[in-house]
Design a binder for these strands. Structure first.
Length: 387
RNA sequence: GGUGGGGUGGCCGAGUGGCUAAUGGCAGCAGACUGUAAAUCUGCCGGGUUAACGCCCUACGAAGGUUCGAAUCCUUCCCCCACCA
């Protein structure tokens, strides 16, 4: 019998783990991939699609939902779960990533961040306290702290500055989170867990310091690993994961934020990551790229003009079980909306299913062989003419 | 039959003496995308040759002419559109 936000470790293989993370809206069987639904929708997909592929948890974004439609409105309408009709677990990102991605539209100071709204140019102030209020209003199961994300190649001085600020902001987030918990009753609200985020760029010592400091600051229900897949080299990302893995408590879920591509998920699981999220499957799906067990393919390529095969011969998704590459290519060239929906569906299914396979291999005791074989095949790129 | 407008690269459409193998857009071809300012962005896009720079060829309805030089000016012809009869 597990209580809310417990994480039960079921088995390990080296650093890799399989577990069960209990949330107010259900249990997340890990490792798991979470689809990104920034604006309270996983772009082009219906919640029914996500349920059908057994997706377990999804994301939404505090910055974007604060600007539109407004977190107060979402709260008034019953919270995110009710609003978007997804009754499974939800995690909200804080807007920390927008500090990075909207660099030209914001200024950071010690107290918080001024954003120039990308929608109407208005000035919007985000602080750890205001972000906690926003995320509380949205009502996700897991909410992320407000952090300071910087480019992956940043030097140690800059990485230290951002990492230490993120930790100071974490302390403020935790205080505001507790305060809201006492003073702000929301009738329909279930419990929330606040996750801290380990920063520190590609600098080993900084990562160790950040992880240790955060761990000493509280008994967190889980840990975000941030500031990766933001421009650094892949070997750096993998190395940092190994460094961070050693510093985090084994009985808490680790969430690698913003990652990633299929190979990154497998590499991440090997290094102790339990949860992932990424816009890649939906964005790339909308842009015509599809994941397959033998690498990526671009469905718009002329070579698929008469190809009767499904995107991925081994995929059981609603696109692969019905439609040919030739048809999907036609949909893209004709700019038909079904095409990008089907590729989004396939790609999300691919990553969700990939993590289910990893989990089965872990539980079955065959993870090392499975992951070796999977990576070898994915990188073999035997698809015709793929470069 | 008359008057006026027009024929430009696969399509649409700028250009009205040299900086034009010819702006743009579309189509086509290829690439990128990692806590989503993204159904977006980037590159190529007459032919031949070259790793590339470049060089050669063919091109602005057709033929001829003017000019050092023409898609741009002149002549004739062909075709399309509008209006008049």
């Amino acid at each position: 019998m597990s209580s809310t936000f417990d994480f039960t470790l079921e088995t390990t293989a080296g650093a890799a783990r399989a577990g069960r993370f209990t949330t107010p809206h259900g249990v997340v069987q890990s490792p798991a991939f979470m689809a990104v639904g920034t604006l309270a929708t996983v772009k082009a997909l219906d919640p029914d699609d996500l349920r059908a592929m057994d997706a377990q948890m999804i994301l939404a974004n505090a910055y974007h939902l604060h600007l539109r439609p407004g977190d107060e409105l979402v709260r008034e309408l019953g919270g995110l779960h009710e609003f978007m009709q997804w009754d499974g677990p939800i995690l909200t990102d804080s807007g920390g990533f927008q500090v990075f991605s909207l660099e030209g539209l914001r200024t950071v100071d010690e107290d918080g961040v001024d954003f120039r709204s990308h929608l109407d140019g208005s000035l919007r102030r985000f602080t750890p306290e205001s972000v906690m209020r926003i995320e509380r209003n949205l009502g996700a199961d897991v909410i992320m702290q407000f952090d300071h994300v910087i480019p992956g190649q940043s030097d140690a001085a800059r990485a230290r500055d951002a990492s230490e600020r993120s930790i100071r902001w974490l302390v403020r987030c935790a205080r505001a989170f507790d305060e809201l918990d006492r003073s702000d009753p929301i009738p329909h609200r279930a419990a929330q867990a606040l996750f801290p985020i380990v920063q520190g760029g590609i600098h080993t010592e900084l990562r160790h310091e950040a992880a240790r400091t955060i761990r000493e600051l509280g008994d967190w229900k889980g840990y975000g690993i941030g500031g990766l897949s933001v421009g650094e080299a892949k070997p750096d990302m993998y190395r940092i994961l190994e460094e961070v893995d050693a510093e985090l408590p084994a009985d808490r879920p680790r969430y690698l934020m913003g990652v990633g591509f299929p190979e990154d998920l497998v590499e991440g699981v090997r290094r102790g990551v339990d949860l992932f999220d990424c816009v890649a499957p939906t964005r790339m799906g909308r842009n015509g790229a599809a994941f397959t067990v033998e690498g990526r393919l671009n469905i718009k390529r002329a070579e698929f003009r008469t190809d009767r095969r499904p995107l991925d011969p081994e995929c059981g998704c609603a696109a692969c079980t019905r439609f040919s590459r030739a048809y999907l290519r036609h949909l893209f060239l004709a700019d038909e909306i079904l095409g990008l929906r089907l590729l989004s569906l396939h790609n999300v299914h691919f990553l969700v299913s990939l993590m289910q396979q990893a989990r089965r291999a872990l539980l079955g005791g065959t993870f090392d062989a499975w992951s070796d074989g999977w990576l070898r095949r994915y990188h073999s790129r035997t698809l015709p003419a793929s470069v």
